[in-house]
Amino acid sequence: MSEKAKKVAHVESRMVVSTRDKLVGGTIRYIVIALAVIFALFPVVFIVSSAFNPAGTLSTQSLIPRGVENFEELFTNFRALMVDELETYPFWNWILNSFVVASITTVLVVLITAMSAYSFSRFRFYGRRTMLLGILLIQVFPNLLAMVALFLILNDIGRLADTIPEALPFLSFIDWSWIKRFSLDSIGGLILVYMGGAMGINTWLMKGFFDSIPREIDESATVDGATHWQTFWQLIFPLVRPILAVVGVLSFVGTFNEFVLARLVLRDTDSWTLMVGLFNFINSDFNRDWGKFAAGALISGLPVVALYLALQDQIVGGLTQGAVKG
């Protein structure tokens, strides 16, 4: 058979797919899939096995835990992490901190940006275009780049707790140390930093959602005597709620997983979030605490993975709009 004839035959065979081709193609595909699944799941299996391996060091890990005598031994690492060694590693504090930071940030960001986006979507005012373009530009400067400046700002804010009672003695009856809750080494300071970084992209995103809701709805409400505030809360907000929920979940997970800025701001063991805590766990000695790290990783990773898998269709929808990490 000549080259050309071969090609023709091939094309024909593709058009009327034969059973043999199906079988070969299918097998190749399944092999590729199997390799990919092994690649994807190998580290996951490794964490799970490390978490349940009573020998908690890195050097003794294998994919199947060895030498397990009884059922209780499987939970050696979990017990150490959640009960026995709370003095050194306040694990529950970290979990609480992570949840507090992620929830407060998410709720405030969604509310504040929804209000801004409503304004951009419904009102026409002088400077609107400039501000929208400004938001796009600001996004180019991620708050990771500004970390030096953010660090210094939080540091300066914290100094107010001492300078205000010094400079204004008649106000020293107020306990100004609350300002330290918004400076370095505080959860409040971290929330501020996260909120600042989330304003740009989320306002832009939400404006898109609001734009998709017909303005006739507002107008009819206005005719009925509703204020803008009432229209926003009682009409528009419920309509975008499903989308806001997805944005909220993604923002929650993103904040929950954030590490770089959290490590920059939080220095004290008790104020760490889960990710900073897990990092410091093994940073000092990679070998010794491996089992406990794996147990902590499993506890914090499972809910996030479950959330992603449950919402994967919505997340894919959000991805194509460039709304999430990646």
Partner: peptide, 16 residues
Amino acid sequence: LLIIPYAMPGVISILV
């Protein structure tokens, strides 16, 4: 199964 690496918190994945 294949999107699990994406869903895992990045800090944990990299450290593992």
